[in-house]
Amino acid sequence: MYRAASSCYGFQDQGVMIAAANPAIFNNRAACGRRYRIRCTGRTNLGVLQPCRNGEITVRIVDLCPGCGANQFDLSQEAFSMIADPNAGRIQIDYNQ
């Protein structure tokens, strides 16, 4: 399996509960290693009408998501699928550190 290097940890394995942070949160690598609790709150499109699954997850920041907006994270597939239907692609979230 090919694994891309992360901005924070290179090729070091950080597990699957990981995320890339938007530029403001990433703050020039200051967020590396921080943990965020993330919960799905709703849909962003008409594709999947009820994408959320119960509960919240905790992810570790390992990379920058340059295309992410102010309240966005790019979650690993494993992390995303724990809180939402993967077919949704994007969801609304609440998060805190």
Rank of each mutant, 00 (worst) to 15 (best):
L75S: 02
G69C: 06
T41V: 12
Q14A: 02
L64N: 02
R29G: 03
T41M: 03
Q77N: 07
C8L: 08
N28I: 14
R39F: 11
D13P: 07
Y36D: 00
Q14P: 01
C8W: 07
R3T: 13
I83Y: 03
Y36V: 12
R37L: 09
C8P: 04
Y2P: 15
D94M: 14
V59T: 05
P51W: 05
A24Q: 15
P86Y: 08
S6R: 04
G67S: 05
G42F: 07
A79M: 05
L49Y: 10
D74G: 01
I91S: 01
V59W: 04
E56W: 12
Q77F: 14
F11G: 07
C40G: 01
Q77R: 14
Y36N: 00
A70V: 15
A88P: 01
I61P: 01
C65I: 13
Q97Y: 12
N27T: 11
N71C: 09
A19L: 03
I57S: 03
Q92D: 01
R35S: 10
C32V: 14
R39I: 13
F80T: 05
D94N: 15
C8K: 02
R60E: 01
I18N: 00
A21W: 15
G47C: 05
V59P: 01
A21T: 12
D85V: 15
G55N: 04
E78F: 15
M1R: 11
D63K: 03
R90N: 04
P86G: 01
Q12F: 13
N22M: 07
F80C: 03
A20M: 02
R43F: 11
E78G: 06
E78I: 13
Q92S: 04
Q72C: 08
Q50D: 13
V48A: 01
A30N: 13
M17H: 05
G33S: 06
Q72S: 12
Q72A: 10
R34S: 10
P51V: 10
D74S: 06
G67A: 07
R35M: 06
L49F: 10
N27G: 09
I83N: 00
T41E: 00
N96Q: 14
I83D: 00
E56G: 08
Q92C: 03
M82R: 08
Q72L: 06
R39K: 12
Q77I: 12
G67D: 01
A30W: 15
A4V: 14
